[in-house]
């Protein structure tokens, strides 16, 4: 579904990604793990075209994404839950979800998808009129995921969904991710919380200092000595 070939990118003279190649197939859930500053967030920003790659190819369902402006990426079926959730703090929960359905194609299915999000997160239905800025961290994350789902994406990008949340909330969020991949969503998730994320995804890539260091299915990576030492503290 999504293919990256030799993608390099950075900010100004600072290069964050060096020839990254990866692939996400339909129905899969894939994680990119790695330490802080490895370029994980940059990777997602490149896929969403919030920054342009300096070289390399990005393809979604066989069509090049490289020259598409950022605001058209979502119409190709890619929705992102950005780092730190980035809700509109002074809009209500429902208005935030409405912004997720901004695309003309999504507007037609607004009611249906709203129902779907409220079923997935009953909490959001209770709080639909509340300003998003007043939600708790976990609720905000749910709202942000809900907002991304409102566009009816084929591929969902999640950027550090567990960051800054209490452990019990983190569990709940990963449970959501697991359920979504069980329901057939294709998910690409970027995480530092290696142990938790490897429990819910099918495959993972290890990204270090802007380069893919290794990859494999979750079970393989969980038993990999290096990863166990560096990221699982074993």
């Amino acid at each position: 579904m999504l293919v990256l070939e030799n993608v390099s990118a950075g900010y100004g003279s600072f290069q964050a990604l060096f020839g990254v190649s990866l692939e996400v197939n339909a129905g899969e859930s894939v994680a990119v793990i790695g330490p802080n500053g490895a370029g994980k967030t940059t990777l997602l920003r490149v896929i969403s075209k919030l920054i342009n790659p300096t070289s390399g190819e990005i393809r979604m369902e066989g069509r090049a994404l490289t020259r598409v402006p950022a605001y058209e990426v979502i119409s190709r079926g890619i929705a992102q839950v950005p780092e730190n959730r980035r809700l509109f703090p002074r809009l209500s929960v429902q208005d935030n979800l409405k912004m997720g359905a901004y695309l003309p194609a999504a507007r037609a299915k607004f009611a249906e998808r709203l129902e779907m999000v409220y079923t997935l997160f009953p909490r959001m239905k209770e709080r639909h009129a509340q300003l998003a800025g007043t939600l708790s961290g976990g609720e905000q994350q749910m709202c942000a995921i809900g907002r991304a789902l409102m566009s009816g994406p084929k591929l969902l990008l999640l950027d550090e969904p567990s960051a800054g949340l209490a452990p019990v909330v983190v569990q709940a969020i990963f449970e959501v991710v697991r359920r979504m991949s069980a329901e057939g969503y294709t998910v690409l998730i970027v995480e530092q919380n290696v142990r938790q994320v490897l429990k819910v995804v099918d495959r993972a890539y290890l990204l270090e200092t802007g380069r893919i260091k290794s990859s494999g299915n979750s079970a393989e990576l969980l038993s990999n000595e290096e990863i166990r030492k560096a990221y699982l503290g074993l």
Binding site: S48, K49, L50, P69, A70, Y71, E72, V73, I74, S75, A79, Q80, P82, R86, F88, P89, R90, L91, D95, K98, M99, G100, A101, Y102, L103, A106, R107, R147, S151
Partner: peptide, 21 residues
């Protein structure tokens, strides 16, 4: 939708493209 986007954009300009705006 347009009105909501107008209210939203003043709160977070950078992520508007992620909404397709």
């Amino acid at each position: 939708y347009l009105g909501t986007a107008i209210r939203a954009i003043s709160q977070d300009r950078q992520i508007m493209p992620l909404m397709g705006v």
